[in-house]
């Protein structure tokens, strides 16, 4: 259905993109308004632009620390999760093991469980192990939550690599693990990278565990930190909009750079090729 696009189509497209982006546009415009104007007017553009909200957002709460925490947790999760998941994906797609269907079924079931159902026992484990308010306390549950997604996507990429390459490696005397490390993993690099981005985004965005396990302000991650900007008595919209803009920028950059890969990863699970 590769139709050519007409002018009407572009008008539709602009309206669609505008509607999708409207909340961001409005939040950005609000973030550069002086405090007084935010509460009193619905003017789109302010006559006296200011960055006071940004200064205040960074001063009232440790926003940069939240971002650092999120970054460390998401990076550790991504690295460990990719290593563990690629092992499983390789074994399931390439090695002669039994119960492949059972293993994939378990992985699939694990991706469907509701997180609230494991939250309280994990909270107890983490508390007993003294891992509350630490990076590890979040990384351990995150790895497990992201495993099903990672295994699922990596398997679709691994299965596409031609078997002949492995056969010749085997003939040259490579052990199965060498074949994995030197042939399959590098060849699937684009797939591995795609998976890594998706796992990173998922870990960066996680809220429930972060809210429950890291309750000290200096260990909070971005999603939790942002949700604590509003207090019971006042809602500092200026700070909140500025903080939202600050935390959204890295994601916009990530998405702009890797949109093609992200889409490839997202659709690899649902479309037969």
């Amino acid at each position: 259905m590769a139709k050519r696009a007409g002018i009407g189509f572009y008008i539709f497209l602009i309206i669609f993109v505008f509607l999708v982006m409207f909340p961001f546009i409005w939040v950005f415009l609000t973030s550069i308004k002086p405090q007084g104007e935010i509460f009193s007017s619905f003017q789109w553009f302010s006559s006296n632009m200011t960055f006071e909200n940004y200064v205040s957002a960074l001063e009232t709460r440790p926003l940069l620390l939240y971002m650092l925490n999120s970054f460390v947790v998401a990076t550790l999760t991504t690295i460990i999760s990719i290593i563990v998941a690629s092992f499983t994906a390789y074994a399931v797609t390439r090695l002669p093991i039994k119960f492949k269907g059972l293993i994939l079924g378990l992985v699939l079931a694990a991706s469907m469980f509701p997180q609230i159902a494991v939250l309280s026992p994990i909270f107890n484990f983490v508390t007993d192990a003294g891992l509350r308010n630490s990076y590890l306390g979040l990384v351990i549950p995150y790895i497990t939550i992201s495993l099903p997604l990672a295994i699922w996507i990596l398997s679709t990429f691994f299965i596409k690599i031609p078997l002949s390459l492995e056969e010749s490696a085997k003939l040259d005397g490579a052990t199965p693990f060498q074949t994995f490390r030197k042939i399959i993993f590098p060849l699937a690099a684009p797939g591995v990278f795609t998976t890594a981005i998706l796992v990173f985004i998922a870990a960066w965005n996680e809220y429930l565990f972060a809210l429950t396990i890291n309750t000290e302000d200096s260990w909070r991650t971005i999603p939790v930190g942002i949700s604590f900007y509003q207090s019971q008595f006042s809602v500092p919209w200026g700070d909140i909009t500025a903080a939202t803009v600050i935390v959204t920028i890295p994601i916009v950059v990530l998405v702009l750079l890797f949109q093609r890969r992200i889409v490839a990863g997202l659709t690899s699970g649902s479309v037969k090729e």
Binding site: M1, A2, K3, R4, A5, F9, Y10, L13, V17, V20, M21, P23, F24, V27, I201, W204, N205, Y207, I222, P223, V224, I226, S227, Y229, Q230, I240, T244, V247, T248, I251, V252, L254, V255, L256, Q259, R260, I262, V263
Partner: peptide, 28 residues
């Protein structure tokens, strides 16, 4: 589902709401 100019840009614009943390979207 057709060929048009600016496909990548539209795709990125569409992905941003999906990619931001739900908590941040909820605050917005």
């Amino acid at each position: 589902n057709r060929v048009f100019i600016g496909r990548g840009l539209v795709r990125a614009a569409v992905l941003v709401p999906w990619a931001i943390p739900t908590a941040v979207a909820a605050m917005m």
